[in-house]
């Protein structure tokens, strides 16, 4: 059963790390979008979304990340996604969007990307 969705935020110098936990679908993507927008309000140099706690994501989550990509590009923030599960990675590939995002294998690589 899907756990309750939540997003944790952590700041490390000029990097903000968002860590969503739980499935991302139409029901929770507004909460995910709000967390991304709030994080972007402080215009960090780097915004890392650690997807290690997301076991499932649909196109509403993908749309939220595309929106965040456009928002951060306009602000000069580097958006980095990391620790995608195979299932989440698959949806990026189906939508052929993986080439538009900076994606790293783990958080350590993401904060240096």
């Amino acid at each position: 059963m899907a756990e309750q969705f939540q997003v944790n935020t952590e700041k490390r110098q000029e990097t903000t790390i968002l860590t969503p936990h739980g499935d991302i679908d139409m029901g929770v993507s507004p909460q995910f979008r709000e967390a991304l927008r709030t994080a972007q309000e402080s215009h960090p140099r780097r915004l890392v979304v650690n997807m290690g706690g997301v076991g499932y994501m649909d196109s509403s989550g993908l749309a939220t990340l595309v929106e965040a990509m456009k928002l951060t590009r306009g602000d000069g923030t580097r958006l980095v996604l990391c620790a995608l599960s195979d299932r989440v990675k698959a949806i990026f590939e189906i939508a052929r969007l993986e080439k538009y995002f900076t994606i790293t294998g783990d958080l350590d690589a993401a904060v240096q990307a």
């Binding site: 196109s59 749309a63 949806i91 189906i94």
Partner: peptide
């Protein structure tokens, strides 16, 4: 069109793809 990179509009593409 997948070349049109914007939020939304991917659901039908995904359904047909899988």
């Amino acid at each position: 069109d997948l070349d049109d990179i914007r939020p939304g509009g991917l659901g039908v593409h995904i359904i047909r793809e899988v």
